[in-house]
Design a protein around this nucleic acid. Sequence first.
DNA 1: ACAAAAGTGTTGCTCATACACCCATGT
DNA 2: ACATGGGTGTATGAGCAACACTTTTGT
Lengths: 235, 235
Amino acid sequence: MTRYSKQTRILVAVDCIIFGFDGELLKLLLIQRGFEPEKNKWSLMGGFIEPNEGPEEAASRILKQLTGLEGVYMEQMDVFGEPKRDPIERTISITYFAFIDINKYEQQLSEEYHAEWFPLKKTPKLIFDHEAMVEMAKEKLKYKAALHPILFELLPEKFTIPQIQTLYENVYDTILDKRNFSRKLLSTGLLIRQNEKDKENSKKGAYFYRLDSSIYKDKFQAFLNFIPNPQALNS
Amino acid sequence: MTRYSKQTRILVAVDCIIFGFDGELLKLLLIQRGFEPEKNKWSLMGGFIEPNEGPEEAASRILKQLTGLEGVYMEQMDVFGEPKRDPIERTISITYFAFIDINKYEQQLSEEYHAEWFPLKKTPKLIFDHEAMVEMAKEKLKYKAALHPILFELLPEKFTIPQIQTLYENVYDTILDKRNFSRKLLSTGLLIRQNEKDKENSKKGAYFYRLDSSIYKDKFQAFLNFIPNPQALNS
DNA sequence: ACAAAAGTGTTGCTCATACACCCATGT
DNA sequence: ACATGGGTGTATGAGCAACACTTTTGT
């Protein structure tokens, strides 16, 4: 016995919802699709799974091909498998969301792959069901970030507290109290203050911090309650 | 253009991790696989996706075929896609976990499909990577149930507070304070007390409750913190 | 000197925990 | 009458949210 007979084989793709943060706005990385159908329309980064790779590997490979980055934070999201979602041929898509430090490669990308960052609130029309994927990713992002320190994956190695706060305010489309926010953040023990200050964004200058990576690993699965009254977020 | 050329098509299956609760122990529903390879070995309920159904539909269909039940609570878990996970032919498996009120069909199942309930702590060896799937499902169950009232899906329409407590104690392998637990539970407003009592499990008898379904829907996504200090659970 | 943003301090209140007692009933 | 499990009450402390002021520095 070498095959399961009588069963249907299906194309399997991965699609990546890639978030980035430039210090001011939360953004989404999109590309112009390079092949038919829907060629040149905006699309998530994706591709088909190849014979000898698992889905995570495929997602990493595609991410590397299109951004040159490796070791990016990535998480499996959901499978989109409606039989008619791709008009050409049935394709099941496994989605991943990924976080990228936007500074690490902002320059190199546009040239080679027609990739572009879009503010989350000003995304263009997307092909197939990619908009539903983005919506789900936004929800999942809100959900996870309320409990776990994943948003740090969007920041450079050194960052300031006002920066993180802006990021959270972006994700939840809300305004947070800086006093309570910084206290909560510091109380996690995740942050190590540096001596330098960021003088670019204010006159006084804000201290740089970096993550304590051992504590970060420990607390990654803990429930940290970064956001006050998260139940109110569903309204 | 009618097909994507040069791409590999792959078998796609769904596998269901089905939990049940008999009032005393949390259990897992397993079947003896009906075909080669690994015929007659214990396995999760699964099957291949057919041409005109989405993954959720496939999972529902398989669940119905094997248990006769419809409208079961089900949630997509993770995709298992290692190229070599199935020795016969590459198969990607989309996993679902499902909750069943064990009383609703305990009788009818064993006969037709060689299905059997196993206490979670005494599960047999499973085929392929099914044990990893079960492990992940247990983790996800713990995670979700700490925040959302999903465990009610395991209970019959009418249940008592001591029953729910036993269920939570099973899931988290811990002992909870009954006074704090019942207060927390009642404070959600999810429960409506009935006049009847369950006289089977104690002399005094415990009040039956049923879910307030409108509040249940509202609060399903809320963070309810059923479990004290959930961070300690990872130890 | 003034504006703009960073940083720190205090207080009241809510909620979670820890813990003790009474109640109803079958034997 | 007593053992068993069900149900209610209270006090303490930790943590969260609301709010005000001082500090630094570029212009």
